[in-house]
Design a protein around this nucleic acid. Sequence first.
RNA 1: GGCCCCAUCGUCUAGGGGUUAGGACGCUGGAUUCUCAUUCCAGUAACAGGGGUUCGAUUCCCCUUGGGGCUACCA
Length: 498
Amino acid sequence: MTPLIQNKFVEKKKSEKLLNMCNKIRVRFAPSPTGFLHVGGLRTALFNYLFAQKNNGEFILRIEDTDRKRYVSGALENLISTLKAIGLTYDEGPDIGGPFAPYVQSERTGLYKKYAQKLLDSGNAYYCFCSEERLEKLREERRERKLSLMYDGKCRNLSKKEIEEKLEKNAPYVIRLKFPKEGKTVFYDKVREKVEVENNLVEDQILIKADGFPTYHLANVIDDHLMKITHIIRGEEWLSSTPKHIFLYQAFGWELPKFVHLPLLLNPDKSKLSKRQGDVAVESYLEKGYLPEALLNFIALLGWHAADDREIYSLQELEKVFSIKRITKSGAVFDFEKLNWMNGHYLRNLGLKYVAEKAKPFFENAGFDISNKKKYLKVVSMGRKRISNLSEIIAQTEMFYKDLKFSNEEKEIISDENSQKIYLLWIEEISKLQDLSNEDIGNLLKKTSEILSVRGKELYFPIRIALYGKCHGPDLPMIIDILGKDEVVKRLKNLLSV
RNA sequence: GGCCCCAUCGUCUAGGGGUUAGGACGCUGGAUUCUCAUUCCAGUAACAGGGGUUCGAUUCCCCUUGGGGCUACCA
């Protein structure tokens, strides 16, 4: 390679890098902090995150809190901690800052007013002095006449003088978008392709409310532009207001981002997923002992699917294979059954120590002493095979940590002559055994069967009830291994006098 | 009501002009020589309807129907 060529090569590399930086993909998750992270929100966050990871882009968290009426204290902190707990990290956000801070809209209000003024000046927005009462009445009338419920544009053409007079009198006002009455808006959504809307059907959206705060429509366009967002990945509920956003970009003379409208997450009855029909708060799933791995994997498959038949993906694997092209168009029912299966799958297949760590709070909550680590791991190892979320593990394993209670049916089996004989024999034989290996127990079972001529359920049920409290449950050797010799003997002796 | 979007098993989905329409969850049955659970195997089940286009449509187009979303000084 001659130096000249080498130089050219280096230069080319440099310019590519530069180009890359300019064109760097930037996406954002922009929830409004209404108290908790909604699973639909989590899905939106996930897809944004995955798209950024896949394309070496940046993922931004921005808080859309321009509705003061819906302010919930602590909601922001909660949102951030949930995102953290689930493992979705962002490159810029309210708690970590970034080059475009602040990332909380209520701290950016001055900005929005400035841009609204620009719109006013360029004739793309107007003052509206209509009262909420008039608007309500208008809608009522239109509803009766079965017309669209749009604002009638009363203030659209007020004279300068009229406006000035009202402003001087401190009349309350809002600022509305002056949306064109003619033509149509055509845009291309990455998921839905071409979408067309007649302009005269689009309302003169309020941009600045009477309290001076912007609405979503204004704030989100300004921030997305200022924060150099390249792809807007959001729920389908925003599809019909996209023409307004597009008009705003055009009015400001800004480059349009790419739009990606995700199919909605649905209730079993196919309506938009809501808390009326089950839990939608991510934190409550976490509290119930659903693992982040399972939640993320399950939710990734709602509205997206790889080309093959694979179902199980780690976050890292999703980051590699995710693509917008494979996002589906139709809404997806949030199927709790499948989530349960998937969570169970992760519970059984993730590292035992990891699962045991995750299970700890549940045992501590139940007041069990799990300081015997060896025993605890055995307990979790057994329990995790029979549950679909960690909150269920206590019911499966509590018999290893507290005294047994028996139903009348079980008491009958215990006091059965045959059972008593087994207990007597076992107390004697077990004491003789050095360690209680699977083999030892197998032999003892065989021996018992021969001496007392019992087998099958007659042999197993009395023992399992004595040691585990139920006739259905894990293999006897496993139960005995967890309990240990002393406890086994103790539990058997306990039942002798019954 | 108006506008927009969507339409393959009950659910999540793959597929795509000619396929035995594939996988997963669920459900059912079987195996793992006590049960339960796990695991494995097998089975059940779908192209909403009607018109086109075509030699041939589940696949492309149109209509109908159905579902959903939006229609706030909420996001």
